[in-house]
Design a protein around this nucleic acid. Structure first.
Lengths: 143, 143
DNA sequence: ATAAATGCAAATCGTTTGCAACGGA
DNA sequence: TCCGTTGCAAACGATTTGCATTTAT
């Protein structure tokens, strides 16, 4: 269980398992997918729990260090994280005209990536693929 | 030639082709690979040319809009760009331990993406694929 | 009791923006 | 001349950090 892993990680470093860290860990995992620090912070406040922004940031860094969550990418609006366990992977198609997003999953695509990694001696952990273009609807609208 | 493309782009929008923009365009292309705004700025000053940081940022945004360069990703130290030409399309593997980047290209990967797009009635224009994991060197360093 | 963690506000850092002076067209 | 552009410095927004106070161990 993730909590145990976190506690062990903290103990090893002489760090303490506090209420705030419990809350932040739980909420981080509760997203079951992508999330950002600001949403997490609001999620916590909405639930009546307490933890400052500073603690959120500090704890997210710890959770990254022990591998419970991962930094997916940085955007204009901040860093996107995702919990390392418990969600199924998918990729995105983004329509550059209307902004709609299609989520998809392709087994062959995953397989090929594994092959490519192997070829480069790289150990892949996860990936992000975004295909930009025009969705069915927008293709019909004349340019 | 890229300069022409940029001028046309500017003209279409009633924008002007200034000395500063010339300098920034040329230096951007001169990198032949990845670069960031700060390096570009220093590159310019080192050569005795002139353009403020503000103009660098403003012009990089324009160069992105007309497709001459692309935003590759954001890091702690800022955004990484790359010129769109003179390089054939490739994807990235990013080592989450040492930050090193491996560029690769896989024909099968491209083909499969086309297929997936077709299946979803999506007209793909371009894409970004980033595989995160551990490079050969970092796999060896003990956990 | 001791050292680490918290919350706050101030500090950072990359990037953007307001504005007066400047300069292509 | 008429706007767009520039450089500067101030403004911004996400994240980090210093510090006095609180708290886990």
């Amino acid at each position: 269980m993730e909590k145990k892993l976190f506690i062990t990680f903290l103990k090893e470093r002489g760090l303490r398992f506090t209420k705030e860290r419990t809350v932040i860990l739980q909420k981080s995992l509760s997203f079951n997918g992508h999330f950002d620090p600001e949403s997490l912070y609001h999620q916590i406040r909405k639930t009546g729990l307490k933890a400052s922004r500073a603690s959120v940031y500090r704890t997210l860094n710890l959770l990254c260090e022990c591998g419970l969550i991962e930094r997916v990418r940085k955007t204009d609006r901040g860093t996107i994280y995702e919990s390392s366990f418990g969600h199924k992977h998918h990729d995105h198609m983004l329509c550059i005209r209307c902004g709609s997003i299609i989520e998809f999953y392709s087994e062959p695509l995953e397989k090929i990536q594994e092959k490519v990694c192997k070829k480069h001696g790289f150990l892949g952990a996860n990936h992000t693929l975004e295909i930009r273009g025009y969705c069915k609807t927008c293709q019909k609208k004349k340019k």
